[in-house]
Simulated scan of single mutants.
Amino acid sequence: MARVKVVTDSTADIPKELLEELDITVVPLNVNFGEDETYTDRETLSPSGFYEKLQKSETMPTTSQPSPYDFETVYRDLEEEDTVIFSIHLSSQLSGTYQAATLGAEEVDTEVEVVDSKRASYAFGIIVTDIARLAKNGADRDECRNRLEHLLQHTTVFFMVDTLEYLEKNGRIGKASALLGSLLKMKPILSLSEEGEVYPYEKVRGRKKAMARIVAELENIYGDQPIQLGMFHAIAADSSETMAADIREKLNVASEVTAEIGAVIGAHVGPGTIAVTITPAQENV
């Protein structure tokens, strides 16, 4: 039976303690402030350090993906007999990371299943941790693949940004571009399409009403079934916890993780963003 190992990239925004517990290998992206300052996501630039720097900088940060060789190196380091690697990554609509991983996988003998999550941040981090936990508990390739396919079909994500400025300037606004110039006091609830592109789910007047609307929609989708809850935010811990408390009250939360949105995703959504992702729970998760 082939042993399963799990690889992801730093935009999954998985807390360090979970990475260590579940033996998840991370390939980092980079964040650039101009031509002379380049930082490695979560290695040389923490989430808190990034937002502090962002607020002081006159330069809009840019991001860059790992090279195919970066992935090839990681896959070679994980090579063992009877091993299959599940390499799960940021939406290909938002980054070339998935394509780089695919090219890297072509250069190694080990079997690598490269997966376009069509999601971002902990919205796919929650999937990565689920599969890694399965693998740690001895699940084989088919069990992991079946669970992965189920999660990709049944994981929900909603998020709110303080401003669309960052999404617009970084070219990641997708179908939400229709909202520009027409918001006034409206607070857009955003999500990711089946193709992995940002789109406006609904417009609500005011942040509190938008948060309540998200919770109501999640309750409508998941009802009483046990769920895994992921809350993630960009220096908006209080708002994130307020929404989490409401979700705990109204949904059947089997497990919960709170994550910080790191520098790469933070460069595209900006400070003040709060997000929630939910996926069906499984036994022993």
Rank of each mutant, 00 (worst) to 15 (best):
Y75K: 07
Y39H: 06
P271W: 12
G270I: 10
Y222L: 08
D36A: 13
G230V: 07
L134T: 03
L151G: 01
V112H: 11
Y122C: 01
D142L: 10
V198K: 00
L148A: 03
R147N: 09
V257H: 12
G174F: 04
D142T: 12
L164H: 03
L94M: 13
T156Y: 10
V276C: 05
L151P: 01
M60H: 12
E283A: 15
V257K: 11
L218C: 02
K208R: 15
L103F: 15
T44Q: 09
V264W: 02
E111L: 12
E37T: 11
S57V: 00
K136L: 10
A212I: 03
D23C: 04
P271M: 05
V112E: 02
I14R: 00
G206V: 11
S121L: 04
L78A: 12
V27D: 02
C144A: 15
V253W: 07
R119G: 01
P68N: 07
E35I: 02
T73Q: 13
A237R: 15
T102D: 12
D109I: 08
V114H: 00
A135W: 07
G272H: 04
A2M: 14
L18H: 09
T279F: 00
G49N: 14
E111W: 11
L94I: 11
G272R: 06
F71E: 07
G34L: 01
L134D: 01
R133D: 12
E168T: 09
S92Q: 07
F159V: 02
L78C: 03
S239D: 14
T63C: 08
Q225S: 14
S87R: 00
M60T: 10
V31D: 04
E194S: 10
E37H: 14
A100S: 15
K209M: 12
E52P: 00
E79R: 13
A210V: 03
I173F: 06
R76I: 09
E43V: 13
A105E: 09
Y222H: 05
A281E: 05
F71C: 03
S91K: 06
E143P: 00
Y51K: 08
T83V: 15
I247L: 07
F232P: 01
S67G: 08
N32Y: 03
N220Y: 11
V161T: 13
A100F: 01
L29K: 05
E21R: 11
E52N: 04
I88L: 08
T279C: 09
D36L: 07
G49R: 13
K53M: 10
